[in-house]
Simulated scan of single mutants.
Amino acid sequence: MKESILYNPLFGIILSLMTYEIGKKIYTRWRYPIFNPLMIAITLTILFLLKFNIPYEAYSKGGDIIMFFLGPATVALGISLYKNSQRLKEYFLPILAGVTAGSFTAIVSVIILGKALGLKKELIISTIPKSITTPIGIELSKSLGGNPSITVIGIMITGITGAISSPFICKFFKIENKISKGIGIGTSSHAVGTSKAIEMGEVEGAMSGLAIGMAGLVTIFLVPILTKFLI
């Protein structure tokens, strides 16, 4: 009986929703960036599985269903982008240049740091897509011969780090332009970072949503070229 409940997809879905709701309530109560709802949800989920010795395979039955909706959720960000389409037309070249520079830096930094730390080629390749959205990152990792599980971990860490640190970074470097904030956050920390950009404002959220798609396309184009010469 217990086995059938744990391996029911509803178990993973309900556990994910409950831990995320707890994270949201904690963040709403104290409003500190360190209390990112997703980070809290991940931590609580891991602790729960370890405490009750529940295999990951049981949780993933429902977790994979949630993962499926990441693609549509990313596309849905286009609604706010549509509302700000005029800004996109006005600043298309600066936006493209910013996304390209950010994607290039994300790829090269992983390769350089990975080689400097003596990491294996597979690990380096698996973490290269860390700054793009999960659906694209998983497929890119597979095509490069990487480990998609490691890729997902890298993407989650990058997104949460971006969501937590982006307000401080913008304040420290005195970045006040709304478009610059959105493009920078979306390019470096994809959908999780975009959740923070949306909190900052509609323009920031729209530009961050735009950057997610553009960064994915630019990364797919740059990765084969850069890995050929740098790895």
Rank of each mutant, 00 (worst) to 15 (best):
N177I: 07
S85D: 03
G154M: 13
L17H: 04
G186A: 05
F92S: 13
G216L: 08
I225F: 14
K130V: 10
N36T: 06
F48V: 10
A76E: 06
N8D: 14
F221H: 08
I198A: 01
A197V: 01
W30E: 11
Y7T: 09
G159Q: 13
N36W: 02
S60W: 09
E176K: 15
I164M: 13
K115L: 09
K83P: 01
V192F: 08
K142H: 07
S208N: 06
P33F: 03
K171P: 00
I185A: 05
G182A: 11
I107H: 03
F92M: 13
F168S: 15
S149G: 09
A41G: 11
I157C: 12
P55S: 12
A215C: 15
I157V: 15
T19F: 04
S85W: 07
S4T: 12
A97R: 00
E139P: 00
K178L: 15
I107P: 03
G78I: 11
T100I: 01
N177G: 11
P224G: 10
V152C: 09
G162H: 06
K120G: 15
F92G: 04
A116H: 08
F48T: 13
G184R: 04
E139I: 03
L217N: 00
K120Q: 14
G216R: 03
G216C: 09
I46V: 12
S16C: 13
P167Q: 11
I54T: 03
T43I: 10
F92C: 12
V218F: 00
F52V: 05
I212K: 09
P94Q: 08
S109Q: 06
V218T: 01
I46K: 02
I13C: 10
L217A: 13
V218R: 00
I111M: 10
L81W: 01
L49K: 00
A41Y: 04
E122K: 10
G205D: 05
I225P: 10
G213E: 11
Y32S: 14
K130S: 12
